[in-house]
């Protein structure tokens, strides 16, 4: 899921990556909406607000919204920078943005739990950190999947899904496997995003800021899942290899024994 890059990715890789990261994005967005009254997994609204504040000449607000947008941009920049500069291991390069995201979200959870006084400055900075985290995630998923997976991009996803559904009214498109796979991926992402949002809402009302630790744990699972899968496959291959070598040695031994007898 994290290991493969661009063209070498299968539908299964993208489905796993899309569903798991969309789930965490839904969790983050709904939590930020409940606590801070701001969206953090998408920036379309912030662009609109930026334009509105510029038109009003409200420069202090313009500065704040621009800071948020910049953090989202910077998160995506870092994620892709790490991906394209990986020389040793794809897995480490692809896992690093998720590690940074975990640090961001855990910081928000930790601060919210022990220090948050609900001042405006704190709120604005915490929103900024969450936007940075979502930028990291969106940058990573879009980058390694060649833009096939965008987990926080619900406007584009809904549009693409609607286009596909309308195409499926014709038989020739219904029989196109690529289109069917794409529809499967998009609908999985949408369902995961909503599920994440609902679950985060329920967790927040029960546990408050600890919800950010739950999201972080979920991201740790994504990182470890791929690692464990890789180790497991490696172990299987080694055993098979040893099995083949072992049976060859046994045959040779039997042949020599037969010759000695003769």
């Amino acid at each position: 899921m994290l290991r493969n890059y661009s063209g070498s990715r299968t539908l299964r890789d993208n489905l796993q990556l899309g569903s798991l990261t969309a789930f965490s994005a839904g969790m983050v967005n709904v939590t930020s909406l409940i606590i801070f009254f701001a969206f953090t997994s998408n920036v379309t609204g912030h662009y609109a607000i930026l334009a509105e504040e510029i038109a009003k000449g409200n420069w202090s607000q313009v500065l704040m919204v621009f800071f948020w947008l910049f953090l989202f941009f910077y998160g995506s920049f870092i994620a892709n920078y790490l991906v394209i500069n990986s020389s040793k291991s794809n897995y480490i390069a692809h896992a690093l943005p998720l590690v940074l995201e975990i640090i961001c979200l855990s910081s928000v959870g930790f601060y919210g739990l022990y220090y948050y006084q609900e001042t405006l400055f704190e709120t604005e900075i915490l929103i900024g950190i969450m936007l940075l985290a979502m930028g990291l995630q969106n940058g990573l998923t879009a980058s390694i999947s060649n833009s096939a997976v965008k987990t926080t991009h619900m406007t584009g996803l809904t549009t693409d899904l609607a286009i596909l559904v309308s195409m499926f009214t014709k038989k020739k498109y219904r029989e196109n496997r690529q289109l069917r796979d794409k529809a499967k991926l998009l609908s999985t992402i949408a369902v995961s995003y909503i599920s994440g949002g609902i679950i985060a809402g329920l967790i927040y009302f029960a546990m408050g800021f600890k919800v950010f630790f739950m999201v972080s744990l979920f991201l740790v699972f994504i990182i470890l899942y791929d690692y464990m899968k890789f180790r497991f496959n490696l172990l299987l291959r080694k055993r098979r290899f040893r099995g083949k070598i072992g049976s060859k040695r046994l045959k040779l031994k039997e042949m020599w024994l037969d010759r000695i007898k003769i």
């Binding site: 500065l63 704040m64 621009f66 800071f67 910049f70 405006l120 400055f121 604005e124």
Partner: peptide
């Protein structure tokens, strides 16, 4: 940008 926000950011409070 962070420094600018802390210095010149909005102060509706």
């Amino acid at each position: 940008l962070f420094i600018m926000v802390t210095q010149f950011g909005n102060q509706p409070t």
